[in-house]
């Protein structure tokens, strides 16, 4: 599974990281540090929940 994040629009809610800090790492200011995530096998459900938790709606599942 691959995830794309519109990093420039991140507002620092950190809700994705509240679901999984490992999948959605934050920078020192608390904003998303990456614009792509290669989801390891077995973490798909967590990744989907992290994407849905974003109030800014900027986390997209590109490939199931």
């Amino acid at each position: 599974m691959k995830i794309r994040i519109e990093k420039a629009s991140c507002a620092g809610n950190a809700r994705c990281a509240a679901v999984s800090e490992e999948l959605f790492p934050l920078n020192e200011d608390g904003y998303i540090a990456v614009d792509k995530v290669d989801v390891p096998e077995g973490k798909e459900q967590l990744a989907r929940r992290g994407a849905r938790a974003c109030p800014e709606r900027i986390i997209f599942i590109e490939e199931e």
Partner: peptide, 15 residues
């Protein structure tokens, strides 16, 4: 409720 993506803290740059 699964979806609790509220905007109680607003959204966008002034979040």
């Amino acid at each position: 409720r699964e979806n609790k993506t509220h905007i109680a803290f607003n959204a966008g740059v002034h979040r």
